[in-house]
């Protein structure tokens, strides 16, 4: 019985610590860093309108599959368009969103059986690309290597973690009742014409137990 319990705990521990396939953000002490300045600097360097090609890998339990994603996002206007294709360039779905609604003009029939794909994709895109800086009245807490900002969001709390050499956004976590519902982690920022793009993004949805791994392939002018 004890052995089973230990095994179960090990499995749960390993599941909870699934590592990201990107370089870990380097530790940099934040004791002397002004949180507001760090956020402002990051806000200035974050692109608000971009088009890019990415690969997206979906993990769910032992299952995983990968595809190509072409995304156009305007964070200021809060609009996005995403086309997902398989590796042979065949379109799987196309989703658009604005402030009011999310639409899917094309979803492959086979995918429709899985539920409202447009809504699921749209929500994840918003979590990943929108609201990358905390509100001015967010609470601030400094850890050794991270600055944490927390603010109310919907039914829960949104937590932003800034860290690394440039004190950039490395994690955005949404909590309800003190339990993490989802988390987006940003890795390997790269500079393109003065704007910062994460080369790798991991989104964990703890409630529905899936993970998205997004790798940036091309930024279009």
């Amino acid at each position: 019985m004890t052995a089973r319990l230990i095994l179960l705990l090990c499995v749960l521990f390993l599941a909870g610590c699934a590592s990201a396939p990107f370089e870990k953000t380097l530790d940099a002490r934040v004791i002397n860093i002004d949180p507001t300045a760090a956020v402002n600097e990051f806000r200035e360097s974050a692109p608000d309108n971009f088009r890019m090609l990415q690969t997206i890998t979906f993990h769910y339990g032992p299952m995983a599959f990968s595809g190509l994603g072409f995304a156009e996002v305007d964070t200021r206007e809060r609009t996005f368009s995403v086309v997902c294709m398989n590796h042979m360039g065949v379109k799987i779905f196309e989703v658009y969103g604005n402030k009011e609604e999310i639409n899917a003009p094309f979803v492959m029939d086979e995918l429709k059986r899985g539920g409202n794909v447009a809504l699921a994709v749209g929500e994840d895109i918003k979590r990943i690309y929108y609201d990358l800086v905390p509100a001015v009245d967010a609470t601030v807490e400094k850890e050794k290597y991270r600055i944490l900002f927390r603010q109310p969001s919907g039914k829960g709390i949104m937590e932003y973690a800034f860290a690394g050499i440039g004190y950039r956004l490395v994690e955005k976590t949404y909590y309800e009742d003190n339990i993490a519902v989802w988390r987006v982690s940003y890795y390997e920022y790269m500079d393109d014409n003065g704007k910062l793009y994460p080369g790798g993004i991991v989104m964990d949805n703890f409630r529905f137990s899936y993970r998205l791994i997004i790798r940036l392939k091309e930024i279009y002018k």
Partner: peptide, 23 residues
């Protein structure tokens, strides 16, 4: 929801492998 995700993933795996071929 988990069941639906499961179904979606199974479907997608098949879709990505074969059904989505252009022809």
């Amino acid at each position: 929801m988990n069941i639906r995700i499961n179904a979606m993933f199974s479907t997608l795996t098949v879709t990505f492998l074969a059904v989505s071929f252009i022809f």
